[in-house]
Each structure stands twice: as structure tokens, then as C-alpha cells.
Simulated assay, not measured.
Amino acid sequence: MKNLALLILLMLLPNLILANDGAFFAKGNQLIPISETDISVKKEILTLKKIKNQYIEVTVYYEFFNPKEAKTLTVGFEAFSPQGDVEGAPKNGKHPYMSDFTVELNQAKLNYKVAYVFDSLYNKSGKIKAIDFKNFEGNKSGNYVDFFYVYHFEAHFKKGLNIIRHTYKYDVSGSIDYNYDFEYALSPAKRWGNNQIDDFTLIIDNGDFETFSINKSFFKDASEWKIDGVGKTENVKGAPNSFIERDALKFHIQKGKVIFKKINFKPNGDLFVYAVNSIGVQDFAYLPHSYYQSGNIAEPKTEFQKKLLKNLPFARRGYIFQNPELKSYYEDLDWYIPDPKYIPNVNLLTPEEKKWYEKWK
């Protein structure tokens, strides 16, 4: 049975990073009905904001429609356990890498409970079958644990429209290959009465000066996305048994966020976002877009390399260089977006960038 539970968890976490490569901390998920229901999801606005490469701040707005008389329903949130270079034991009775979990239904804050469950068959006739944690014989701590979490609450749905606002945070995962990655389960939304989300919006805000990719698991091409700001996209071709196995869409965001909208959304795949650790930074063949990869850059050995580093903050903002060597170098970088209107101003850089600029003057 332990092997069965582990197999189920691995199937639910296809992008899992194992211990010797990094850490999987947590993934976002949909609210789900614990029993069969005719309540439908009319609208969902899901906002994911990456904070300082440390955690994902999740804000969800739902509109549910109850076609019949008022009813009370147990609603759950499945939080899969961390694996890899982690400590998997519960923290204060909750998921160790998830925090600030809140639910509000029709402007009333709801209380919730947390159950530890052994496998995906925890739902028994509309009730949650939790394990007896004290006497549980599986792994309860360390790099791998044999259970996961179900946050659950009682929701009283009035007849007609019901609004749920839901928030939480979870730690960003990472590995030797990924500077960061995070996941969000979209497909469980099909467990509601209409087997879809009638009107779905996904907003991802990874911050300015970021390059990241999104697997093409629930969309086909760039035309389905909007960049609210300044940026560009390129296609990434996956290959079986390679580092990048799935086709993806890569975003180079100078400023702003990305938005996906879909009517009658029936997600057959889940969200996986990742930023690859830059290759070539040791010999200056490449310089990263993100602040958070600056520490991977080697010490400069020539005056030209020092010039490259000094001007990196301006290149990120699209400065068109007059120096032919600098101009040629930055125009070859995939993330560079020239802005003829941008005028370099050291005083407008961030405090960290000012220190960077002074270091390489």
C-alpha cells in the first residue's frame, strides 16, 4: 500500500525535482467539491505573483452558481507534500511550505481544518477519511513523506450566485537546472458541476526583467496570451528524454505581467512555469536577464567584460548603445528589447543596481 501511495503522488507530480537535484516545496491547486455537486464555476480569476524568488502569492476570485435551493457543501484544497531537499514534516499541523491560507464566501470569512490523507481515495461518501497521524506507519518526516494534506471547510452556497475569495502563499521550488519553478493544478476545476470554468483568467506576475517558460499543457500558442507591459515571446521545442521534454512558450518580460483568458475552459493539463539557470555566464557568452541570476556571472577578466557588467542594468531597460561592441553584444541576447525612448539614468536604478553599477565603474 505504501508503494501504491507513492506511485499516486508521483503521478500527480510529474514535474517533481528529486533530492539530489533540488527541492519541490508545494504547488497551487483549485478548490474542489468533496462530493458530487451541480454547483458550477461561472468565473475564475487566478493571480500568481512571484515575490523575490522566494514564494508565490496566490489570489483567486471565484463565482459559483448554485441552480437549486441553498445547501452546505464540504470544499477541499489538496496540498501535495514536499519532496527532495526539504523537511516534509507538518509545521504547526499544516503544510510546511504553505502559509496565509484564507477563504471568504459571500464576504464572510470561513474557518478551515487540515487533514492528513494517505492517497487519492480519501473521499468516502462525501467525507474526508484522514489518517491517524500518531499511529501512521509511513514516513512522517524527512525528504519524502507518505501522506499529503487536504485543507477543507464547510461552505453554505445560497441559491444563485456565490463569490469566493481565496488566498495563500507557497514556496518557490528550484534545482540545479531551474533558477526557480512553480506549478499550479488547473484540471481539478473540472470536478465541479459544469466540468469546466465558464470564464477563466490567469494572471502571472513574475516581476520585471524576467525570462521564464510555460509548458504548452493547456494552450497551443502565443496568440492565447497577452503581455500587459513590455516583452516578447519565443517557442521552445521539447524532445523526449531531454532536459526540456515538453514544448513551451518562453517569455522575456522587461516590464509587466502575462495574461491568459479562455471562455469554456476545460483544462486537460496543469500549469508549470520555470526559469532555466543561464548557460554561458562563466565565459560571458551570455548574460542573464534576471537580477536573481547575477550571482552566477563570473568575475570579468577584460575591460570589455567590465563594460558589459556596468551597462547590464541599462540593457535590461532597452538602451540602444552607441558603442558598436556593446550594441552588437546585447542585440544578440534573446531577452534584449531595444527602446529608442529610454535614456540611461543611474539615479533611477534600484538600490541593488546602483551598487552593481558602482562596482564595475
Rank of each mutant, 00 (worst) to 15 (best):
N3D: 13
L9I: 11
M11W: 09
L12Q: 13
L12C: 03
I17R: 14
I17Q: 11
G22D: 07
Q30T: 05
I34N: 00
S35H: 03
S40A: 15
K42W: 08
E44P: 02
T47C: 08
L48G: 07
Q54W: 01
Y55P: 04
V58R: 11
V58K: 14
V60I: 15
E63C: 07
N66D: 05
E69Q: 03
T74I: 06
E78Q: 13
F80Y: 13
P82M: 08
E87T: 06
G88M: 15
P90F: 08
M98Q: 14
D100P: 01
K109C: 11
L110V: 10
A115Y: 03
V117P: 01
F118C: 07
F118N: 14
S120D: 08
L121S: 15
L121Q: 06
Y122H: 00
K124P: 02
I128N: 01
K129H: 02
K129I: 01
K134N: 10
N135Q: 07
F136C: 11
N139Q: 11
N143I: 14
N143Y: 15
Y144H: 10
D146P: 04
F153G: 09
A155K: 01
H156N: 07
F157Q: 04
K159M: 07
G160T: 00
N162H: 00
I163R: 04
H166C: 00
T167G: 03
Y168R: 00
Y170N: 03
Y170H: 08
S175Q: 03
I176D: 10
I176T: 11
N179V: 07
Y180L: 11
Y180H: 05
E183R: 08
Y184M: 01
Y184P: 06
A185D: 15
R191L: 08
W192N: 06
N195Q: 15
Q196E: 15
I197H: 07
D198K: 15
D199I: 08
L202S: 14
I203C: 01
D205E: 11
N206W: 04
F209P: 09
F209G: 09
E210M: 13
S213V: 07
I214Q: 08
F219W: 10
D221E: 06
S223D: 12
G231M: 02
G238I: 11
N241R: 05
E245N: 10
D247H: 13
A248L: 01
K257T: 02
I259R: 11
F260S: 06
K262V: 10
K262C: 01
I263D: 09
A275W: 02
S278D: 07
I279F: 13
V281N: 06
Q282E: 14
Q282S: 11
D283Y: 12
D283A: 11
F284L: 08
P288I: 05
Y291W: 10
G295F: 14
N296K: 05
I297R: 03
L308N: 04
L309H: 06
Y319H: 12
Y319N: 00
Q322N: 15
N323C: 02
P324C: 12
E325R: 04
Y329T: 04
Y330N: 02
D332W: 05
D334I: 05
Y336G: 05
D339C: 00
P344N: 03
V346A: 05
L349P: 02
T350N: 13
K354P: 08
K355N: 12
K355R: 14
Y357V: 13
